[in-house]
Nucleic acid binder design. Structure first.
Lengths: 151, 151
DNA sequence: AAAAATTTGTTTACAAGGAAACAATCTCCA
DNA sequence: TGGAGATTGTTTCCTTGTAAACAAATTTTT
């Protein structure tokens, strides 16, 4: 008699279980899941943190450049930046040499906040590969860097 | 004089460039981007395909089990299944031994369609790691499998 | 220099996905 | 047996992110 599977461990994924796209999706969901469990005192989502972090290290960066590097579309970047501006975390400035563009800078308070949050953020990031050995983790990071084209 | 960065290659990501969560997000976006460029004749999104594929290999699977395995939340699964049902691809059946549950099966037409689409899907999946060597690709797959806990 | 094409950011409308509250059913235990 | 609690799926509302149309400014062509 042909019983339907009842537990998720019994599910037959067949070739899906070696498909990079599928594995990558599961991996990212796993990371984000734990991230939100532990957001801690800094109420920053991963996306917000990475945007603020990059602005901190590249003051006066333009929205478009920021978006290209973080793979965030322009329409969405507009909303992100406005939300950050509303929280008093960033300032926008239209430069004289190109009045279409917008240059983004952190407010001093935000710079402090981001530097502090970064301790927590990178500690969390380090804990992410806890079920891998140190070597495996490094290998994975290296392969992903090559895969996405970060030299 | 302190010029703001103008090109995305010049952006300083600092430690973000080795953060697993960040790299994983970029990797996934890269995969999906190319996926949608090449959807071909089967108008299936990755999520839809993987759901249909798993139902094909586990006929009569319950929504909840399907969701657990693919990491899709119940609320979202309800919508996915209804959409597939509206397209005539799946049938829902409430089993006698648990009248809360719903067992999902592919219609014969859908089974054919999924089998055919799978050729294209897995060909695409194989092409995904094209900028890695065969060895690296295999390593990456293995590490990801371990990372997400697929034995 | 004027016209055409491109770039930059914004707006609007929409799709994907999740959280929380809910109803129905099932399980466990006193 | 009869609650109390857990599970399953659905609904409603909300967040995140995208696509397409647009306006303003810049660059390229002629």
């Amino acid at each position: 008699m042909d019983m339907p599977v009842r537990t998720s461990e019994d599910v037959d994924l067949d070739r899906l279980s070696t498909a990079l796209g599928f594995l990558m999706r599961l991996a990212q969901l796993k990371i984000y899941e734990r991230f939100f469990e532990e957001v801690g005192e800094y109420h920053l989502k991963p996306g917000e943190f990475s945007v603020l972090w990059v602005i901190l290290h590249n003051p006066g960066i333009r929205q478009s450049v920021l978006g290209q590097r973080l793979m965030i579309k322009r329409a969405h970047m507009t909303k992100l930046i406005r939300a950050l501006e509303d929280q008093g975390l960033v300032t926008r400035r239209v430069p004289d040499d190109d009045r279409r563009a917008v240059e983004i800078t952190l407010t001093p308070a935000a710079a402090d906040k981001v530097r502090q949050a970064s301790h927590w953020f990178f500690t969390y990031e380090d804990s992410v590969g806890a079920n891998l050995t140190k070597d495996e983790r490094q290998q994975l990071t290296g392969l992903l860097r090559k895969f996405v084209g970060i030299d």
